[in-house]
Amino acid sequence: MSLFDWFANRQKSGPSAKSLHEREVPDGLWHKCESCGVLTYAKDLHLNQMVCPECQHHHRVNSDERITQLTDRQTWQPMDQHLRPVDSLDFQDRKSYGDRIRDTQAKTGLSDAVQTGLGQLNGLPVALGVMDFRFMGGSMGSVVGEKLTRLIERATRERVPVIIVCASVGARMQEGMLSLSQMAKIAAALERHQEARLLYMPVLSHPTTGGVTASFAMLGDIIIAEPNATIGFAGRRVVEQTLREKLPDDFQTSEYMLNHGFVDIIVPRTQLKKTLAQLICLHQPHIHTPRFVNLSSAPQSLVTASSD
């Protein structure tokens, strides 16, 4: 009897399924898939890059984990960690923006919603930006804009490809027009990167919406999406309200975006590093040594259950 069956049996025979359920999912040890409901040993789920081994549902990945997944061990050099957001508008909704920043920083250990840096991906140098949904929904304010712009500018100077993993609700309202302007600022840096004939590949994860979609997420030379991520400009509820009609089930999913020509490829997370490396190699015709072509030589931590 597997551990799953054991749990399933216990649940059936138990006096109160609900109270048992609470005891069965102790924090951190087991993870219940939000899509199929199957429990996975948390460590296994992490080894499988937060992809449910049962239904392939892609759970959210924080920026630290994503960096570990995409960069070769000991190659990550973070940039601009000393930038901090400020409440320059003196913004107060139900809570002041200053308090929101402090609380979120304390809770997540992050300074803002993106981590940027240089690293190697299967031996290939890349400039990598990873957004973190935990920090105010991955929203883009001045710090996110500045860090991404500096990353792209550095990549242009050092002639390396840029990869940005998107996970964001869009512009950060608490910084008003300063946030909206970051869309143009980042686009400007990407224009120079593109002009230098360098490769930029955004990876759209769940969710990628609003001002991020209307700027760097859609400006990739090659746009990659994770399966079943929400990708769109206006929120689904907003569209539903404007139309007063039910939207198709797959509306604003990765698959919808692929079918309508706005995403190049959908890549499962377990194949992401390999695919990025392959695409970078294909854009550097002088690199064709087996070291780069033979992608099975990925670090052991990346060999995943689903690729077995």
Partner: peptide, 22 residues
């Protein structure tokens, strides 16, 4: 920008993003 089904289908985000860069 118009937030309708057709606008999303035709890539509202991409259309704006492209202009920002170009």
């Amino acid at each position: 920008a118009w937030a309708g089904l057709e606008a999303e289908r035709l890539g509202q985000g991409e259309a704006i993003a492209y202009n920002l860069r170009e």
